[in-house]
C-alpha cells in the first residue's frame, strides 16, 4: 500500500504541476511559485514598484486592463499581470495556492469565500456595482419595452441559471417585479445569454448593463426600474500571499481613485 501511494504521488505530482500551470495567468509572468521572489520593493519611502498579479472577474477585463496600464505608467518599473476568469473559479484557484497579490470579485459571495479562508490581507473594499438590463437584438423585433413584456406568450427569453450570479440577480428582479418568467434557456454565463440574443435566437435576455455596453451595437439595452432590486457589488482586496503588499495596496487605491472610477463609469458600472 505504501509503495502504491508513493507511485501515485510520483505520478500525481507532475500532473498537479501541469494543472497549476494551467491555472496561472497564462502569460510569461515570471512568478516561480513563490520560491524565487522576483518582485522587489524599493527600500525607504519611494513609490512602490515591481511585479503585480491581479485575479479579477471576467467582467472586469476591459476596465482593469485600462486601469492596469495607467497604473504601470504611474508606477515606472511596475508590471501588472491579470488573470481574468469567473469569480468562483478564481477563488478555487486561490484556495489551491495560486500566487496572486490582488483579488477583485464580481460579487460579495465569492469575496466572502476568500475572506472566510483568510486569504485576504485587509477588509475588502467595494469599488463598483452593476445592475441588470434587458438586452434585445438590434431593432428589438419582439418590441420589448418593460420587464413585464418578457412574460408575453411567444417571447423567447434567455437568462442565466439561478446557480450563477447573473441568474440569482434575475431571480431577485423577477420577485421584485412580481412576474413569472418562463425562459427558454437558463445559460451558464452572461456570454451565453448575450450570444443567443446576438444570434437572434432569443428575443430578449437579462444581462448586466456593462455587458450591453460591451457588446456595442450588436444588442440594444432596455433599462427597467426593478433592476435596483439586484445591485451587484464588486469588492476588491489585497491578498495575504501578496509578495509586494505596498504595491498591491497601491493598485487597490488606483481602482478606487477618481481616475479608476471614471474608467469603470465609462464602461457602465455604477457607484458601489
Amino acid at each position: 500500500m505504501r509503495y502504491a501511494a508513493r507511485v501515485l504521488a510520483a505520478v500525481a505530482a507532475p500532473l498537479l504541476a501541469l494543472t497549476l500551470a494551467g491555472c496561472g495567468s497564462g502569460d510569461e509572468s515570471p512568478r516561480g511559485g513563490g520560491s524565487s521572489p522576483t518582485s522587489s520593493v524599493t527600500a525607504g519611502g519611494g513609490e512602490p514598484k515591481g511585479d503585480l498579479t491581479v485575479f479579477a472577474a471576467a467582467s472586469l477585463k476591459k476596465t482593469f486592463t485600462q486601469i492596469g496600464s495607467r497604473f504601470e505608467q504611474d508606477h515606472p518599473g511596475t508590471k501588472v499581470t491579470f488573470n481574468f476568469a469567473g469569480s468562483s473559479d478564481l477563488v478555487a484557484q486561490l484556495q489551491q495556492g495560486a500566487p496572486a497579490d490582488v483579488f477583485a470579485s464580481a460579487d460579495e459571495k465569492n469575496m466572502a469565500k476568500a475572506t472566510g479562508d483568510s486569504l485576504t490581507a485587509a477588509a475588502p473594499v467595494d469599488f463598483a456595482s452593476n445592475t441588470l438590463e434587458i438586452a434585445v437584438p438590434p431593432g428589438n423585433p419582439a418590441k420589448i419595452a418593460t420587464l413585464a413584456d418578457l412574460t408575453r406568450p411567444g417571447v423567447k427569453v434567455v437568462v442565466c441559471a439561478p446557480e450563477v450570479p447573473c441568474g440569482s440577480a434575475a431571480t431577485k428582479v423577477e420577485t421584485a417585479a412580481a412576474i413569472d418568467l418562463k425562459p427558454v434557456s437558463e445559460e451558464q454565463n452572461v456570454t451565453d445569454v448575450l450570444g443567443k440574443v446576438i444570434a437572434g435566437e432569443a428575443d430578449a435576455g437579462l444581462v448586466y448593463v456593462t455587458d450591453v455596453k460591451g457588446a456595442g451595437d450588436k444588442v440594444e439595452g432596455i433599462e427597467f426600474p426593478q433592476s435596483s432590486a439586484a445591485v451587484n457589488v464588486y469588492p476588491i482586496a489585497t491578498l495575504k500571499g501578496a509578495q509586494n503588499k505596498a504595491l498591491a495596496d497601491a493598485f487597490v487605491a488606483a481602482v478606487t481613485s477618481a481616475s479608476g472610477q471614471g474608467v469603470l463609469a465609462d464602461a457602465g458600472f455604477g457607484k458601489p
Partner: peptide, 24 residues
Amino acid sequence: ITFAGSLQGVTRTLPLEIYLQRET
C-alpha cells in the same frame, strides 16, 4: 450549450448539469 441552450428537463443534459452544478 451553444445550439440548444440549457433548461432543466428540456435541453439540460447531464454534462450541462455537471458544469452548472460546479458553480454552486
